[in-house]
Design a protein around this nucleic acid. Structure first.
Lengths: 123, 123
DNA sequence: GGGATACTAAAGGTATTGCTTAACTGTTTG
DNA sequence: CAAACAGTTAAGCAATACCTTTAGTATCCC
């Protein structure tokens, strides 16, 4: 079950990054950060047909970035802030690793320097 | 020149998210957070041919996530930490907007509540 | 009921992506 | 020099992504 969770996280990241890789989809997300909106409201500013915009919404919803609920004939979409934290966690994990590495490198260089005081074998 | 900058940033985000949307490319990035590596070293764990891995590296480099330098016959790749901040800035901008919105919503609800004390026109 | 509205479903076309294999260039090493 | 090594280039192919048009369905308003 641990392996499954890891694989799911990989697939989640695939879907999240893929979803945000399209400018039209980011535009939808940007609009939704200001508050919920109906499908046609989201589609109106986009330079494409309404079905195309719907497909983008489908991608965003599949990625978990957007959720929506239909009442009457209008579907209202809103943003899912929690989804972003998956991306941020991934980035932060990378940063933690390379900063740790740079720390070790710094310490190593400092060690060389102080050893050099008594050694004198530098160029 | 301001418009151009904005358009470039859109294209940058396209390339960044697109680059990270592939598990093989994320695997390369994850490997590089531990330190620089040669092309073949990066390709070895990937379930694909070396030219395929090279193409992934090309995508990462075009996105600015990786830089590389060839010395002799070996090209050494390393990560470009600054590239991640473009993504983080975009996410943080979204977060700033929706948090601001939620604050306004909270204040509004509090206002309703305190007005209700003297008004009594609730349901 | 009948027309406008809001969305959905389906089919199809073009472009891009991710991979392959094969052939090739430049760099060490025995 | 010859062979192994590390990387690169190019061509081609199957799958996917993004968009279109067309044709629906369900809801709302008069």
């Amino acid at each position: 079950m641990l392996l499954k969770r890891m694989l799911n996280q990989v697939a989640d990241l695939d879907r999240l990054f893929q979803a945000l890789a399209d400018p039209a989809r980011r535009a939808i997300v940007e609009r939704l950060t200001f508050g919920p909106a109906a499908v046609s409201e989201l589609a109106r500013p986009l330079p494409m047909s309404l079905p195309a915009a719907m497909q983008h919404l489908g991608v965003l919803e599949a990625a978990g970035l957007v959720r929506s609920k239909k009442v009457g004939r209008v579907r209202t979409c809103s943003i899912e802030p929690a989804a972003f934290s998956v991306i941020e966690q991934w980035i932060n994990a990378r940063r933690a690793e390379w900063e740790q590495r740079l720390d070790r490198l710094g310490n190593y260089l400092k060690t060389l320097e102080s050893e050099g005081d008594g050694d004198g074998s530098g160029t």
